[in-house]
Amino acid sequence: MKTTNDQMLGASAAFFELTDQISRAAPLDRPMLVIGERGTGKELIAARLHYLSNRWDRNFQKMNCAALPDTLLESELFGYEPGAFTGANKKRKGRFEVAHKGSLFLDEIGTMSMTAQEKLLRVIEYGEFERVGGNETINVNVRIIGATNIDLPAAADAGEFRHDLLDRLAFDVITVPPLRERQDDILLLAENFGRQMALEQEWLQFPGYTDEAIEAMLEYQWPGNVRELKNVVERAVYRAWDGEEPIGDIVFDPFESPYRPKAVKISQRNGQAVNHVVPDRSDTNNDYGVDVDAPFDFKEVICGQEKAIITKVLEKFRYNQRQAAKHLTLSYDQFRHLMKKHELLS
Score class of each variant (00 low, 15 high):
residue 7 Q to T: 15
residue 10 G to H: 00
residue 17 E to N: 08
residue 18 L to Y: 05
residue 24 R to G: 05
residue 25 A to I: 14
residue 32 M to D: 10
residue 38 R to S: 09
residue 39 G to L: 03
residue 47 A to F: 11
residue 48 R to I: 14
residue 56 W to D: 03
residue 58 R to H: 12
residue 60 F to Y: 15
residue 69 P to S: 05
residue 72 L to T: 11
residue 81 E to P: 01
residue 81 E to Y: 11
residue 85 F to A: 00
residue 89 N to I: 03
residue 90 K to I: 15
residue 94 G to Y: 03
residue 123 V to S: 02
residue 124 I to Q: 02
residue 125 E to P: 14
residue 127 G to I: 02
residue 129 F to D: 00
residue 131 R to Y: 09
residue 135 N to L: 04
residue 139 N to E: 13
residue 145 I to Y: 04
residue 151 D to S: 11
residue 156 A to N: 06
residue 157 D to V: 08
residue 160 E to L: 08
residue 179 L to P: 00
residue 182 R to I: 08
residue 183 Q to C: 14
residue 191 E to M: 12
residue 199 L to P: 00
residue 199 L to M: 11
residue 201 Q to E: 14
residue 203 W to M: 10
residue 205 Q to A: 04
residue 206 F to P: 03
residue 207 P to E: 10
residue 216 A to K: 13
residue 216 A to T: 12
residue 217 M to L: 07
residue 218 L to V: 14
residue 220 Y to K: 03
residue 221 Q to V: 14
residue 227 R to Q: 05
residue 230 K to I: 07
residue 232 V to C: 01
residue 244 E to K: 15
residue 246 P to E: 07
residue 247 I to L: 11
residue 257 S to C: 06
residue 258 P to A: 06
residue 261 P to N: 06
residue 262 K to P: 04
residue 267 S to T: 14
residue 268 Q to P: 03
residue 272 Q to A: 09
residue 274 V to D: 07
residue 280 D to R: 05
residue 284 T to R: 05
residue 289 G to N: 09
residue 290 V to E: 02
residue 291 D to N: 12
residue 297 D to I: 06
residue 302 I to W: 10
residue 307 K to H: 12
residue 310 I to F: 10
residue 312 K to A: 09
residue 315 E to Y: 07
residue 316 K to S: 11
residue 324 A to D: 01
residue 325 A to P: 01
residue 333 D to G: 02
residue 337 H to L: 09
residue 344 L to V: 12
